[in-house]
């Protein structure tokens, strides 16, 4: 099995504060990986380092390529569309994606739009939080990438939209591609995760196959995740 991502001794500081320290992480192709950790643990920072939007020390190889400026061509990342004006229509945003990303597949986008029940004539400024997240997911999955990074795609959206998004992930993730989904609330996505990576104490605190956690400890992913935090509490 080949690796889609290999991180070696990655350290990242921001304003003299160490966010991540000596991180090693290897991900195989074809997996769905849950990136778990508290707010502020460094999940988004780690994703930005992987895409090359942030720079740290150490090496990050995506599909064997360690040149940071090449990473974005292998990676489809959920961007929050902040660069677009609120009066931009969704189909205009899709046209922009089509122009910028050669791997943007119009056919896939159409299928995703239908499945996620999105009206592309709407303007970005008029979208509810759940609808905007669905648009972001459709744009992200419409690209044929090797690595997908979904940064908290379920925060603050209703359960029906969440179910649709989860189904679209199963339906549209290319077989060989790996998908990293960050979240601090795990129970709803637990059944679709191959592995979990837990970010804590400035590093990768644990990296395990989900079914191995269930088999080894007889507990669920959420209980396991919470137990790591309880162990860290000092009783004095």
């Amino acid at each position: 099995m080949t690796n889609v991502l290999a991180i070696n001794q990655l350290t990242y500081k921001h304003n003299l504060k160490t966010i991540l320290k000596d991180v090693d992480l290897t991900l195989e192709t074809g997996k769905i990986v849950g990136l778990l950790g508290e707010n502020g643990a460094g999940k988004t920072t780690l994703m930005r380092l992987i895409t090359g939007s942030a720079k740290g020390s150490g090496t990050i190889a995506v599909c064997g390529d360690s040149v940071a400026t090449h990473h974005k061509s292998h990676i489809s990342f959920t961007e929050q569309l902040r660069g677009f004006k609120p009066n931009t229509r969704i189909d205009r945003v899709a046209n922009f994606y089509r122009t910028v990303y050669p791997d943007f597949d119009g056919q896939r986008f159409e299928e995703l739009i239908t499945f996620l029940q999105i009206d592309t004539s709407l303007k970005l400024g008029a979208l509810s939080k759940g609808m905007k997240e669905k648009v972001v997911i459709a744009l992200t999955l419409a690209r044929q990438a090797q690595l997908y990074l979904l940064d908290e795609p379920f925060s603050g959206i209703d359960s029906m939209s969440r179910k649709r998004i989860i189904s679209s992930i199963i339906k549209w993730k290319p077989e060989d591609a790996t998908m990293v989904i960050s979240d601090h609330y795990v129970s709803e996505i637990a059944p679709i995760l191959d592995e979990v990576v837990i970010v804590k104490d400035q590093g990768i605190y644990a990296h395990k196959p989900s079914d191995a956690i269930r088999e080894e400890f007889g507990i669920g992913i959420e209980a396991y995740y919470e137990s790591l935090y309880e162990r860290g509490v000092k009783h004095d």
């Binding site: 997996k31 769905i32 199963i170 339906k171 059944p191 995760l193 079914d211």
Partner: peptide
């Protein structure tokens, strides 16, 4: 396999296993 995964809302690899 993928249809089963969608129907059961689980991972394709898990269905395969």
């Amino acid at each position: 396999v993928r249809q089963l995964a969608v129907d059961l809302t689980v991972n394709v690899n898990t269905v395969q296993r």
